[in-house]
């Protein structure tokens, strides 16, 4: 109390000084969230990190040494990258033109609802559906054989392309919705201005839209990539989990639940996180080369 009184005489009170730095009563509301992050993310992460340095053989880096010496293990990094990278890129490349078209539609809600469905269904259900659709007796093979394009059923599943298609199906809606929000965030009068200045559609995209979209697209790429990189169910269900689609999460799964080596599993999870982080940092690093302010033509 005396401090407050003193504060009144000399200048701003403690409360006022804290408020000036953006700290007030409402700041306390952040605490539950901090507790949640600490308990459910930071603590398990640190626990896993510590665990990964306590391998069965007793050496500090035993797990990491083993991972990077066995092709069967370190190969999973590249097998997963070979899936996640092209899938993310393809999703983004399809999403951009569609988002440009959809931004002008009046019934956007219906379309976005339809697109959200695959997200809510989850990867397992999509993989199940693919098993039937692309199976020997499925619509895909039967209709292609009916038109005479095929004589015997082809097997799309149980390999690279099965997982690829499944990742495109489940990843696209997410990528698209993010892209759409970035595309619609660009003030339409900028396009009109460019048009009246003599820029055709291609020039408008190249000179106005693309530079303003790049930062958003980079974020979209990162989020979609991280999602694709952690693929597990479809790699098992519609892929070839012993060979081409032996992704890094399968390796972690096997270490944990087949070899019961939690320490090794933690090490693999850490390596997986490091790879994702590396890609994200690289992409966001490139992003800083571009303009990153508001995508509107004037101050508010």
């Amino acid at each position: 109390m005396s401090a407050v009184m003193e504060g009144r005489a000399d200048g701003p009170t403690l409360r006022q000084r804290l408020a000036a730095r953006g700290i007030d009563g409402a700041t306390l509301l952040v605490l539950p969230c901090v507790a949640l992050i600490l308990g459910l993310f930071i603590y398990p992460f640190l626990y896993g990190l510590m665990l990964s340095f306590e391998p069965k053989d007793g050496s500090l880096f035993g797990n990491y040494a083993r991972f990077f010496s066995e092709p069967f293990l370190y190969g999973t990094i590249f097998k997963t990258l070979r899936l996640a990278f092209p899938v993310t890129l393809l999703n983004l490349l399809i999403a951009i033109p569609i988002a440009f078209r959809v931004r002008l539609l009046r019934r956007q809600r219906l379309l976005t609802t339809l697109l959200v469905l695959p997200i809510t269904l989850g990867t397992v259900l999509v993989a199940e559906g693919m098993l039937f659709y692309f199976g020997p007796q499925g619509w895909f093979n039967r209709s292609l054989m009916a038109v005479g394009l095929l004589s015997t059923p082809v097997s799309v599943l149980n390999g690279y392309w099965g997982v690829f298609i499944s990742l495109v199906l489940t990843g696209f809606p997410f990528t698209f919705l993010l892209t759409l929000s970035y595309v619609s965030g660009i003030d339409p009068s900028l396009e009109n201005a460019a048009a009246t200045l003599g820029a055709g559609p291609a020039a408008r995209f190249r000179e106005v839209f693309l530079p303003l979209l790049v930062p958003g697209l980079a974020i979209t790429f990162c989020l979609s990539f991280v999602q694709a990189y952690s693929v597990l169910p479809s790699a098992v269900l519609v892929g070839d989990p012993a060979n081409v689609t032996r992704v890094i999460s399968i390796a972690a799964y096997q270490a944990a639940f087949e070899e019961y080596d939690y320490s090794m599993a933690s090490a693999i999870a850490m390596i997986m996180g490091a790879v994702q982080l590396l890609v994200v940092v690289a992409v966001l690093g490139c992003r800083s080369l571009f303009y990153r302010g508001p995508a509107a033509g004037a101050k508010g």
Binding site: S189, A193, Y291, A295, G297, A298
Partner: peptide, 9 residues
């Protein structure tokens, strides 16, 4: 334009 529509980048 009313909102100027300057290219912000």
């Amino acid at each position: 334009f009313q909102n100027y529509a300057l290219f912000p980048h």
